[in-house]
Design a protein around this nucleic acid. Structure first.
Lengths: 198, 198
DNA sequence: TCTAGTCTGACACTCAGTACCAGTCTTGGT
DNA sequence: ACCAAGACTGGTACTGAGTGTCAGACTAGA
């Protein structure tokens, strides 16, 4: 078979990726995102620059690969919401796993988000990554509302707004040194708007 | 006086900027954003690379400087909305000047947005630029609602959501080859959500 | 053992963006 | 008209991200 080798390789690759990201994160926190070069990262990890870059594709991705599981969790959670629930409530609840993941390990998620928040390049790329989740979320909302889903514009607007509510909450959470409950801030942001129709 | 010279210089500088951007836009449309280097742009404009870059600061800004007046127009329009109007309606109406500006000169705004839409780097930077408008918009909303404005989180969420509704409408407008009325798409996106409270 | 596919390090390269410097031009004051 | 201060220009050198290529080492399966 071919699949066996592929799978073990895939596992190994993921593990290496996480290990490299972990080491890099320490350096970024110490010297700032722009204060560390790819050469620094590679040298500290004991691999060549080529290899290091092969694992991530870009410097930003070294940090932001952490968020990949969040996107999947978000989509799954939305799909698991009861059919009767309106879109806005479902989107709010779908964020719970993501919020839990960010607040588990006190300080972990906070430090990560603070790093992202004060590095414009990371902010921009994180939004790009989020934009990549949107089509899947729109798809789930569309299926939930079958057989007569709202237009693509409407669904897209709701998903985008929900993502921005999350981002707003995260920004305030970081700005407030992580003191208030993140979940409460997300509630407050979602409460600023309400679903119209359906 | 010192101001006189400063002003004339400022006018000249703006004019040169626009002229350079105009020429660059043609090249970008022909060869794509990534298909044109700063050397190409400078050579075509008849200035040195140093000088060209001094006018914009970054390659993305050559394209996105076009959006600068939009931010100001947006803030002014929001400030001009009647006091009784709720936030969501006011934000929607505040976008009218921006929409008009983008749809005047048929094809102009459309081609620009299509270029931005298919260049990830430009998308990301445009969102960054929009993020720069938000604090001012939040400030205006806060003043409108004096003496008891909602929390910063709430206002920020509304402004961010409004911006995303605009972006969603723009994306769909470009995807549909500019056929439907942009204003109608913005209405549809805004209609996907409704203001809660106040 | 052999073979095919993968991973690695090394090197060369393009390009964006920054810093600096010397020469030139413009502006306002004398 | 002349001069001094400041702005604008072009040139050069540099850093650092990201791409492409290549040969050699490693690994899994036949």
């Amino acid at each position: 078979m071919d699949a066996t080798g592929t799978i073990t390789r895939s596992i190994g690759r993921t593990a290496v990726r996480e290990e490299l990201a972990r080491g890099a994160f320490v350096q970024f926190c110490r010297d700032g995102f722009d204060g560390v070069t790819l050469d620094d990262l590679a040298a500290a990890a004991g691999v060549s620059r080529s290899t290091f870059l092969r694992y991530f594709g870009s410097k930003e991705e070294v940090v932001l690969s952490t968020f990949d599981p969040l996107g999947d969790a978000l989509v799954d959670a939305l799909r698991a919401r009861p059919a009767g629930e309106d879109d806005w409530a479902a989107l709010r609840r779908a964020l719970d796993p993501a919020v839990r993941q960010l607040t588990r390990e006190p300080g972990e998620g906070f430090v990560l988000l603070r790093l992202v928040g004060r590095t414009p390049a990371l902010c921009a790329r994180l939004r790009e990554k989020q934009a990549g989740w949107r089509p899947r979320l729109v798809q789930v909302l569309s299926e939930r509302a079958a057989p007569a889903p709202p237009s693509s514009v409407v669904l897209h607007a709701r998903v985008a707004a929900a993502m921005e509510c999350l981002m707003t909450a995260l920004e305030h959470w970081v700005a407030a040194e992580g003191r208030p409950e993140l979940g409460g801030l997300v509630d407050e942001a979602f409460g600023a708007l309400a679903p119209a129709g359906r």
